[in-house]
């Protein structure tokens, strides 16, 4: 491991998901230790149903064709790849409570924790990003 990358995913759109998962998989591929903290709408990015059909920003639906043409992997594919490469997924407990969601609504292999869980990881991270 050559460094640590800490990411906060706080938004639930398709573009947000790509930003989060592309950076996370690229960092993991570069031997970085990576953790993503999913909070508020960011939880959509690991929600079993929601993450399969994340919305495009309004008025940007025409990007769908570009995604297809560029052979960009789907979000579930990217999430699986990130997991496989050892990226830690932390779902925000407080948001889950507020939204009335249980851990089994989310993809397998996630941790559930509070802000301190993430901060503990992020305190000596080399790169910290918020999306």
């Amino acid at each position: 491991m050559t460094g640590k990358t800490a990411i906060i995913a706080a938004n639930g759109g398709l573009f947000d998901a790509y930003k989060v998962y592309n950076i996370a998989t690229a960092a993991a591929a570069s031997d970085q230790e990576v953790a993503i903290f999913f909070t508020f709408e960011g939880l959509n990015l690991i929600h079993k149903e929601a993450y399969q059909q994340l919305p495009m920003p309004e008025g940007k639906e025409y990007f769908a064709e570009g995604f297809k043409k560029s052979n960009v992997p789907s979000i579930p594919e990217l999430a699986a790849m990130a997991k496989e490469m050892g990226v830690t997924f932390i779902g925000c407990q407080m948001t889950m409570d507020v939204m009335g969601l249980e851990k089994d609504a989310f993809i397998d292999g996630i941790e559930v924790g509070g802000a301190v869980t993430f901060l503990e990881f992020a305190k000596d991270a080399d790169v910290t990003l918020t999306f």
Partner: peptide
């Protein structure tokens, strides 16, 4: 393949 796949596959 699009980014980040070439790097991921290389890794």
């Amino acid at each position: 393949l699009a980014c980040p796949m070439p790097v991921v596959k290389t890794k």
